[in-house]
């Protein structure tokens, strides 16, 4: 049923070569090995200021859960201790690069894609520090960000189920 009329040998010639400029403008992803991280840098202090201006309204003044308040955004800061609740960056994110990637592509929720790369480095530094993962004086950039070892990293495993009858 998944046999289409294409013979593997055929090239159809539909579509066109993408230009380097076109690729660059969309290629925003960042990999754990740092591939995709842009030039630029940011520190905890500037990050905190940007956080207060652009993020706190949804994630709370300190990024922590506020008792009795349901925030539009998830808690970002918590006990950096495996299995603690709520699941946040400190106790549940296996890679620091993911934080840069995610903030750059989709935050702030109301204005995604509006942050400069330096702002994203700063916010990443601020949130990692708030979660007690990096020191307050760290200046993050493309070199040191991929080096950070997240506390939750060791907990994560690729799917270990073999399929078939096993309940796992």
């Amino acid at each position: 049923s998944l046999t289409d009329t294409a013979k593997k040998a055929v090239k159809f010639g539909f579509g066109r070569t993408a230009t380097p400029k076109e690729i660059a403008s969309w290629d925003i992803d960042v990999r754990p090995d740092g591939k995709g991280l842009p030039a630029g840098k940011g520190d905890v202090k500037t990050g905190r200021i940007i956080y207060t201006t652009k993020c706190a309204v949804c994630h709370g003044a300190n990024g922590t859960e506020t008792p009795g308040v349901k925030l539009p955004g998830a808690a970002l800061v918590g006990d950096t201790l495996a299995k603690a609740r709520p699941k946040t960056i400190g106790n549940y994110w296996p890679y620091a690069t993911t934080l840069f990637d995610y903030i750059r592509r989709s935050m702030p929720y109301n204005l995604p894609g509006s942050l400069t790369d330096n702002e994203v480095y700063g916010l990443t530094a601020y949130l990692l520090n708030a979660n007690k993962i990096i020191k307050a004086d760290v200046v993050l950039d493309a070199q040191n960000l991929p080096q950070i070892v997240m506390p939750a990293r060791k907990l994560f495993i690729m799917d270990d189920r073999k399929g078939a009858p096993e309940i796992k």
Binding site: R31, P32, I89, P94, F156, I157
Partner: peptide, 20 residues
């Protein structure tokens, strides 16, 4: 790529590990 959706989300604790 270890995107947010495959690490912070769509993963689940299995005894003392987190399965992704």
């Amino acid at each position: 790529y270890m995107t947010r959706e495959e690490t912070s989300k769509y993963t689940y604790p299995v005894k003392d590990k987190i399965r992704m």
